[in-house]
């Protein structure tokens, strides 16, 4: 399990000062710590595309933020990515819970998106990695570097239990 406090300290050390998100139960610990954090502000968005819009505006102003959402939100952000964040060269990290895998077999609402999540990201030309407890700082450092170097959004897929 990645300790949410240490995770947020790491993000702060990389100059991320804002998080915007739509919750998933996979992120409940992280979201509790975000609400408590005095260093990283949290904005609850009404929709995932709104979160991408806020992150884009934040970068227009010269600051870095990250977005949190369930993979169901990937179905909502296609236009926000292709006609805003990707088109305007806006780097950001998008943490996406990977729902619809075997542990979600009682939740059919996630099954189809779970199957297509990686192909959908590939179709959208969004680079992604699966963030696991082991080596999470290296994975994250690589994603942050790539996002900044390419000035593009980069996605991290989070399976159940990774954030506790």
């Amino acid at each position: 399990m990645i300790d949410s406090i240490i995770f947020l300290e790491y993000m702060k050390s990389k100059n991320f000062s804002l998080a915007i998100g739509v919750p998933c139960s996979y992120f409940s610990n992280l979201l509790i710590e975000l609400e408590r954090s005095s260093e990283i502000q949290y904005v609850p968005a009404t929709r995932e595309d709104e979160a991408i819009g806020i992150a884009s505006g934040y970068y227009f102003g010269g600051e870095k933020s990250f977005v949190i959402m369930q993979n169901s939100g990937l179905g909502t952000i296609g236009d926000a990515l292709t006609s805003l964040a990707q088109l305007y060269n806006i780097p950001m990290l998008i943490f996406v819970s990977y729902r619809g895998l075997t542990e979600d077999e009682d939740f059919p609402e996630h099954s189809i998106m779970g199957e297509i999540t990686e192909n959908l990201l590939k179709s959208l030309n969004v680079s992604f990695s699966i963030l696991e407890e082991e080596g999470w700082q290296d994975t994250l450092a690589h994603s942050i570097d790539q996002s900044l170097k390419e000035s593009q959004p980069v996605c991290l897929l989070i399976k159940k239990g990774v954030f506790g």
Binding site: V43, D49, G53, G57, F60, G61, G62, S83, L87
Partner: peptide, 17 residues
């Protein structure tokens, strides 16, 4: 140029930074 529906959210992000 695109992102119909997002000008307020872009403005919010910009105003925060």
């Amino acid at each position: 140029r695109g992102s119909m529906g997002l000008p307020l959210s872009v403005g919010l992000g910009l105003s925060l930074s």
